[in-house]
């Protein structure tokens, strides 16, 4: 039975539908933790009108599988789901969903945050923003590297 799901898609997703499907027929589950990332209308002092997400097909899936595998090595998880959107997006749009099921909340909270921190620094996605000053590639954030580095101390 498949327990880890990775989807790269242009289409939007519905949180309720995804969560229901993830723990359907699985009465072992006592905790479902989800994270949804959305597009902000402001970045580095500029108004963001929209963005386009590019990725590296093939490597994206491989890197997300590796991220999930590492999460499983650290915590007892039942199922994991990562949905990442690509293509054109507007402010308020959902970009990413990470969902994790486990017996208890501690494992699920930690794994969800770990997967998200790891994704931010290792999965090959790039954002190009349309701002009032023109379009620009988003710079990687030092704070994302710092968030990832926390997990290496464990």
């Amino acid at each position: 039975m498949q327990n880890d799901f990775i989807r790269i898609q242009e289409a939007d997703f519905d949180l309720t539908t995804e969560v229901k499907a993830l723990h359907k027929d699985d009465p072992r589950v006592g905790a479902v933790v989800t994270f949804v990332g959305t597009v902000r209308d402001m970045n580095d002092g500029s108004q963001v009108k929209g963005m386009t997400l590019e990725h590296y097909p093939g490597m994206t899936e491989k890197s997300l599988e590796e991220i999930t595998t590492q999460a499983r090595d650290r915590w007892d998880l039942y199922k994991t789901l990562v949905i990442h959107r690509v293509g054109p997006l507007s402010p308020e749009d959902q970009i990413v969903l990470v969902a994790v099921t486990s017996a208890h909340r501690g494992e699920a909270f930690a794994a969800c945050e770990f997967i998200m921190d790891y994704l931010k620094t290792a999965a090959p996605f790039w954002k190009k923003e349309e701002t009032s000053e023109g379009s620009r590639w988003v710079d990687a954030r030092v704070t994302d590297d710092a968030a990832m580095a926390r997990w290496k101390k464990n």
């Binding site: 990442h84 931010k120 620094t121 790039w126 988003v138 990687a140």
Partner: peptide, 10 residues
Amino acid sequence: VAFFPPVTGG
């Protein structure tokens, strides 16, 4: 072999 800038997904 792929070259790219630091990633900015999520």
